[in-house]
Design a protein around this nucleic acid. Structure first.
Lengths: 124, 124
DNA sequence: AATAGTGTCCTATTTATCTATTACACTATA
DNA sequence: TATAGTGTAATAGATAAATAGGACACTATT
């Protein structure tokens, strides 16, 4: 995985796991890979992974079972809320970024559409 | 100004100035506020402002004139390129963030539209 | 009982960022 | 020629993040 050096790695790991959970690659009740395994996979220190996971346990997105592993919450309502929260956050951030560049609302939508169009043709 | 504690302040200052330049609040040839003044305005250390400005000088977005101040480049082509670069960066980032949450292209556009609609009614 | 796989905790070190402070170089002007 | 306003540089200290390495507690399995 590739990290943005302008944002803490533990924070990016949290977002990575959020996305995997919401995308269903990590389903409710699923066991998250072991911290040591994740550290290897992400080429990162165990403590950095641990920080990300422990915050997600505090948020009750993950449930920690000592000696067994960390598991995705089975509370699907909470996962849905998380998804909604992330969407709103991303949309807000994007809108304010581009609006600050003096683009009209229509132009903002148009820029997005144009980009999506270029993505369709691009294989992989 | 309010900073995101997950991103270096000097980096956020750069973006703030980019936006002011592109929005025309800082026109080509204009003098940027003095480093010490900016430091006061942004409630930040002089060195932090200096780091932001010196990087922008390296990028040739600003021209440094010792003893006089820092000035916005008069190369409007470059400013246009900067604007375009920022737009593309923001759109890309947004698209991949939301696409990673299993939203279809249509849903992505719809979420943006919905948010914009809520903004229109919101005064201030 | 022993072992392997877990989560969790702790200490120490390094690096990047931010701050504080001082100093110096150049420009414009009273 | 002083003086004030600029940019620039250098040093030192504080904090957060990441790393490295080790240790301990619990669980499941052999």
């Amino acid at each position: 995985m590739q990290f943005d050096d302008k944002v803490p790695i533990y924070y990016q790991i949290k977002n990575y796991l959020y996305h995997r959970i919401i995308a269903g690659q990590l389903a409710p009740g699923d066991k998250v890979p072991a911290v040591r395994q994740l550290a290897v996979d992400l080429t990162v220190n165990v403590n950095t992974v641990q920080r990300a996971l422990s915050e997600m346990v505090t948020e009750q997105v993950l449930i920690s079972k000592r000696g067994r592993g960390n598991f995705v919450t089975e509370d699907v309502t909470q996962i849905a809320a998380l998804k909604h929260h992330l969407i709103v956050t991303y949309v807000q951030q994007f809108y304010h970024q581009v609006h600050g560049l003096e683009l009209s609302d229509d132009e903002i939508v148009q820029e997005l559409r144009t980009y999506i169009a270029t993505q369709k043709g691009a294989d992989k």
